[in-house]
Amino acid sequence: PQLQQFIEIETQKQKFQFLVHGLTDICWELCIDKPSSRLDNKSEHCLKNCVERFIDCSNFVLNRFGKTQFAAATEEITFD
């Protein structure tokens, strides 16, 4: 049981870190133009907002898809 819990927590951590790799990729492309000698305020704000807005966007997509299309879409997609 302890081992299982340990593995579960580590799996969670790994999932978290892989999402961070993905988010860093997306927000780096959006916010960083030329690398400079330090991270300026503008880039820092952009990165923070990028993370927050991406999660907002993801939640928005999930909710909207859930409400209007999930049942229908899953059927359509699966048995097309």
Partner: peptide, 9 residues
Amino acid sequence: SWNLVSRAY
């Protein structure tokens, strides 16, 4: 960026 994204997330 990685660290900032990690903390924000």
